[in-house]
C-alpha cells in the first residue's frame, strides 16, 4: 500500500487486456479438441476423476445436478434425429472443460479474489481463499465451475478407495468452488524440472490427464505461446488466434474447422474446437 507506487506507475495499472494488459506470461497453455475424432468414450472424464481427486457423487446427487465432473462429455442431437427418448444414434459429443479464458468472466466477480490469472495463462482457483459466493459459476457462460455442495469426501472414497487419491493435490471440503486446472500439479512438476535442469519446457513433456487418456488423440495440449508446439501449429493451421474476437477466417475454405466456443462473448477461451464433419447419408 504505498502511494508512491500508485503515482509512479498509474498508467501501467490502467492497462487492460486490449492495451496489452499487465500480465507477463511465461506460458499460455491451451488445447485443440478435434470433435471429428472424438468418440465420446468418456475416458478423459474418467482420467480427470482419477487425477484430480474428483468425488464420485452417486446417482441421486448426479440427477440433482450436483456432479463434480470437471471434464464432461456433452451430448447433442439434431432436432429431427431426436425423437422421443434419446435417439439410438447420431449423438454429437463435445468434451467441455474449463476454457481457461484470457479475459475470464469468472474472475472480476469473485468478491475475495479467490480466482485469478497465473503467469501460465491459467485461470486458477484458490480453494483456501474461496468463500463460496458462487458468483463465478453464475457468470461462466460454459458452466464449467463445480461447487462442493456437500462434504463429498466423507462417502466418495470408502476404504480402501482412499488409497488411490492423488497426493499431489488436496481433497476439497464443502463450500468451495472448483474447476479444471489443466492439471496444474503436472505443470508444477514440469516447471520445477525444467528450472532445475535450466532448459526450456519441451512440447509434450507433460500432458493433462484427459489428453493423456484420450484413445483417439482428439485432445492436443500444449503451450500456445510456443510457435513450434503441436497445439500452436493446429491453431495456426485453422487460423484461430488468441486475443479478443476481431479476426475473420476465410469463410470459403472448408478445411478451416477451428472455432472457440462462445468466442463472440469476447472471453478469449484457450481451447480451440475443431468442427465435426459428417456425411449424414452414411
Amino acid at each position: 500500500m504505498s502511494l508512491k507506487n500508485v503515482l509512479e506507475n498509474f498508467s501501467y495499472f490502467r492497462q487492460d487486456a486490449e492495451s496489452g494488459g499487465t500480465h507477463k506470461y511465461e506460458h499460455r497453455f491451451g488445447m485443440a479438441i478435434d470433435l471429428d475424432i472424438c468418440t465420446g468414450c468418456n475416458s478423459c472424464s474418467t482420467a480427470c476423476y482419477a487425477e484430480n481427486n474428483l468425488p464420485v457423487v452417486g446417482k441421486e446427487r448426479f440427477e440433482k445436478g450436483q456432479a463434480m465432473h470437471w471434464m464432461r462429455i456433452e451430448r447433442y442431437w439434431d432436432e429431427q434425429e431426436f425423437e422421443g427418448d434419446f435417439a439410438e444414434q447420431g449423438a454429437k459429443f463435445m468434451p467441455m472443460l474449463c476454457q481457461q479464458c484470457g479475459a475470464a468472466t469468472c474472475e472480476p466477480v469473485c468478491p475475495v479474489a479467490a480466482t485469478y490469472h497465473t503467469p501460465d495463462g491459467l485461470n486458477a482457483q484458490v480453494y483456501n481463499r474461496c468463500i463460496g459466493s458462487r458468483f463465478c459459476s453464475n457468470n461462466c457462460p460454459f458452466r464449467v465451475r463445480y461447487f462442493n455442495f456437500w462434504s463429498y469426501y466423507e462417502d466418495s472414497w470408502p476404504e480402501p478407495l482412499n488409497m488411490q487419491l492423488n497426493p499431489d493435490l488436496s481433497v476439497r471440503d464443502k463450500g468451495v468452488m472448483e474447476k479444471c486446472t489443466f492439471c496444474i500439479q503436472r505443470i508444477r512438476v514440469a516447471k520445477d524440472t525444467t528450472q532445475r535442469e535450466e532448459r526450456p519446457l519441451k512440447d509434450g513433456e507433460f500432458l493433462t490427464a484427459c489428453a493423456q487418456a484420450c484413445p483417439t488423440n482428439a485432445i492436443v495440449f500444449g503451450d500456445t505461446m510456443d510457435p513450434d508446439s503441436n497445439v500452436s501449429k493446429l491453431w495456426m493451421k485453422h487460423q484461430v488466434q488468441r486475443g479478443p474476437f476481431t479476426h475473420k477466417k476465410e469463410k470459403a475454405n472448408e478445411e478451416l474447422r477451428g472455432y472457440r466456443v462462445f468466442e463472440e462473448l469476447n472471453v478469449d477461451p484457450s481451447i480451440m474446437y475443431l468442427e465435426r464433419v459428417r456425411d449424414t447419408e452414411v
Binding site: D16, A17, A104, C106, E107, A113
Partner: peptide
C-alpha cells in the same frame, strides 16, 4: 480513491478478466 487504488496497486497479482489493475 487513494485507499482503493493503493490497495489494488499493491495487490496486482490478479488483474482480472482482462480489466486493468485499477479499474476506475
Amino acid at each position: 480513491f487513494f485507499f482503493l487504488t493503493s490497495a489494488q496497486a499493491s495487490f496486482f497479482l490478479q488483474p482480472q478478466g482482462g480489466k486493468p489493475v485499477v479499474p476506475l
